[in-house]
Computed example of a mutant assay.
Amino acid sequence: METNEVKAYGTEAVNVPLHSMNIKRRELQPHDVEMEILYCGICHSDLHQIKNDFGHTMFPIVPGHEIVGKVTGVGEHVKKFKVGDLAAVGCIVDSCGKCEYCEDDLEQFCDEGVTFSFNSPDKYLGGATLGGFSETYVCNERYVLSVPEKLDLASAAPLLCAGITVYSPLKHWQAGPGKKVGILGIGGLGHLAIKIAKAMGAHVVVFTTSPSKVEDAKRLGADEAVLSTDAEQMSKYAKSLHFILDTVSAKHDVNTYLNLLRPDGSVVLVGLPPEALEIGAFNVVGGRKSFSGSNIGGIAETQEMLNFCAEHNITAEIELINIQQINEAFDRLAKGDVKYRFVIDMASLKK
């Protein structure tokens, strides 16, 4: 297959800092969209992958799956996009397209396995897919999203992973008027969960271990904010919440939060702690509670989320960086030192 060479930032091994490299992108196929990448968000899972925390990183790796850009080329059969359109690519760039889940717009559950925007087998070029820390991206139009023009492009980039990761479970578990929704953790995911749950009409209670974030939670729209290390504060919320979205990506005690649920309530995990979490049997049996999980969303739901965020003027709170600052940004992300999402200005790649 014909290819084009483009600039990117990636690494060949766990302990090698990310650095400039040249990678290959496929030539346009009949249903492909090519975009110049304008902005790319940095997700906690990018950090997990470059550190091989999950044990399945395929090196060399180019991370990045919160991709916003401008269309620079379309294949002859492309119907939804034209050159010059604003477009985006999130986590999913391919699936079988014919199983029951793909047909139901649930590509994230594809029977044959979903292809992610980086670190998945690349059926076109071999090796692994390479992500958005690069000049361009090429993707089948079925997996490309339209970016509403009223959204600020840089701060919209994190919606492509963080946004859909929280929107999908909030919608599935019916966050809305009359529902008391807990948000555990205020980071890249949690701060967007506050904004989205509030826009859905829910009463939002935030739990954080950081005193400084208690006030910030209210600025972001939370109705209440609780310091989770304060046992007296926590005791006031026993059996009061319909649903808790758990965005924490480190080991933590989930049982504490199961005890804050009303009967039939759920704690839903969207963070990705590398270690196993323990669940006490009595904490789920009593009150018929559940501990569940959710992972991103399908393409149609991601488009729905982008449109919802445009309607409600929701974007991420970001720190815009140049690509040359990427290793410092990952070090800071590992320490939780970001409010609330790093986004790379990809124009810096040309420097």
Rank of each mutant, 00 (worst) to 15 (best):
G286N: 13
S235W: 05
I92W: 00
L260P: 00
T11D: 08
K150E: 15
G131C: 09
V166A: 09
G131A: 11
V16G: 06
D246H: 02
H172P: 00
L47I: 04
G132N: 04
G297R: 00
S266K: 08
G185I: 02
M200Y: 07
Y101F: 15
H191A: 08
R341W: 06
P273I: 06
N295K: 06
P263N: 13
F207D: 00
V248I: 14
L189H: 03
A334Y: 12
G97N: 12
K24Q: 15
N327L: 09
N52M: 07
G287Q: 07
V284P: 01
Y257V: 01
M305G: 04
Q324I: 05
G297Y: 00
V254F: 00
E311Q: 15
A231K: 15
K150G: 09
S146T: 15
A88L: 04
I299D: 01
G188W: 02
D253W: 11
C40P: 01
K80R: 15
A310C: 11
V166P: 03
M58T: 13
M21L: 15
G126S: 12
G286C: 12
I186K: 01
A202V: 04
V93L: 10
T3D: 10
F291M: 07
Q325P: 03
K213M: 11
T57W: 02
I323K: 05
S294H: 04
P263G: 10
L192W: 02
K79C: 06
A87Y: 03
I299A: 02
E215K: 14
C96H: 06
C99M: 10
H19S: 14
D53S: 14
D32F: 04
Y143A: 06
K150F: 05
E76I: 15
I244N: 00
C110S: 06
A276E: 14
G190D: 01
I323C: 12
G84V: 11
E149A: 13
I321K: 12
F133C: 08
F342C: 03
H31D: 14
D345W: 05
A217E: 00
P63H: 03
L145K: 00
I344W: 07
S45H: 05
L184F: 06
V267Y: 01
K339A: 12
I183E: 04
S249L: 08
Y237Q: 06
K98G: 10
